[in-house]
Amino acid sequence: MNRRSFLKWSGFGLVAATLGGLGMREAQAGNRYYSGPISDHFDGKIFFNPGGEEPRGFTDLLRWQFGGGKIDWPKPVKAADFVTTKPDQRVDGNRLVVTMIGHATLLIQTAGLNILTDPVWSERASPVSFAGPKRANPPGIAFDDLPMIDIVIVTHNHYDHLDIATLKRLADRDKPRIITPLGNDRIILDDVANIDVGVTDWGDRVELGDGITIHCEPCHHWSARGMGDRRMALWAAFIIETPGGKIYHIGDTGYANGQHYREVREKHGDIRLAIMPIGAYEPRWFMQAQHQNPEEAIAGFGLSGASFGIGHHFGTFQLTNEGIDDPPAALKTAMSAAGIGAERFKGLRPGQQFEVPRARA
């Protein structure tokens, strides 16, 4: 099987990262993205999850890929499963409106500010245009219908979260400020020179004025864009502190015994909204350390103390073995078992919006 066929067959964006994309770059002695002091999560060359698990290697990747069990997604996806929405240009005051665009891309609107998370409008989550995971549905907001974007949060560098083509479009149109963890600034600025990138480490904060502060917080994941850069850029979750309350956004994470959910509650107190991944979790033996499942997401939601929640990272790109409807079905079961009503936690489909109440349900 040649490289192109393998990438297309696999349906998993991180296979491309593992194999090194088109370049098949060799490992280098140093870190190509970041140089800085040793810390509790950086050893001088690579980042790591303190007390956590390392990502599995190539042998396990092949075991998964050739082990069967992958559920085919319908092609095309039923039109009833998605809508397109034209959001308001601004949402003022303490109102908080979140629109699902697809996968981990959401538009957060509050206090007159428009924030995008992990924006991907490309047709594939891949280093190449001809292969790799393809969109199962169009973006829930057409790019031309996006309001002017002020802030972009890029949580880590996997292709389903850091999409250079989309960042170029945003830079040309709106020139937003990008907030991203250590090392990802180098990746972005190598291809998108005309944009302001603020780089953060775990525990850092970025003051934006008017009562808006973005805090960079730990999560349990990893990073790679090529064969020689595994864990050379940091991954993170973020707390967006606003006059109307705090928003906890996680792009990707393993549950890691709920450690980071407990820590964020202890550090930040009341959280109005938690946005967390609920998809790309099968098979568990391979995915558990990097992608939580819906049951774990609901457990983490409880530990975080958040009043409301949104689940994402499902139904747009088929990255793993589960069926397209498995995450929302499992989410419903987990919510019922935890006594969490549908008014508190939403598994949004592309184009759906959630106007988040102020008071705890």
Rank of each mutant, 00 (worst) to 15 (best):
M1D: 11
R4E: 15
K8R: 13
G11N: 00
A17S: 12
T18W: 11
L19A: 04
A27P: 13
A27T: 15
A29N: 13
A29R: 11
N31R: 02
G36E: 08
I46M: 13
I46K: 15
F48K: 00
D60H: 00
R63N: 03
G67N: 00
K70N: 04
I71L: 07
W73S: 00
P74S: 03
K75H: 13
A80E: 15
F82R: 08
P87H: 07
V91M: 08
V91S: 07
L96K: 04
M100Y: 13
M100L: 13
I108N: 04
T110C: 03
G112L: 07
D118G: 02
P119E: 06
V120S: 10
P127K: 04
A131K: 09
P138Y: 03
P138V: 05
G140T: 02
D145N: 14
I153T: 00
I164L: 09
L170I: 07
A171C: 02
A171W: 08
D174S: 05
P176H: 06
P181C: 02
P181I: 05
N184D: 12
N184G: 10
V199C: 12
V206M: 11
E207D: 12
G211V: 03
G211D: 04
I212D: 03
T213V: 08
T213L: 02
I214E: 03
E217V: 15
P218W: 05
H220N: 14
H221P: 04
S223I: 03
R230H: 09
R230W: 07
A233W: 06
W235A: 09
I240A: 00
P243G: 08
G245C: 02
K246Q: 14
K246I: 08
I247K: 04
G254D: 06
G254Q: 03
Y255K: 07
A256I: 08
Y261H: 15
E266Q: 15
G269L: 03
I271D: 09
L273I: 02
A274C: 10
P277Q: 07
P283T: 03
P283G: 01
R284I: 01
W285E: 05
F286L: 11
Q288C: 06
Q288E: 15
Q290F: 14
Q290G: 14
N293L: 04
P294T: 05
E295Y: 13
A299C: 11
G300A: 01
F301K: 02
S304V: 12
S304Y: 10
S307Y: 15
I310F: 05
F314N: 08
G315F: 05
T316N: 10
N321A: 11
I324R: 14
P327V: 10
A337P: 00
G339D: 04
G341W: 01
R344S: 08
G347T: 10
L348H: 07
A359S: 15
A361S: 14
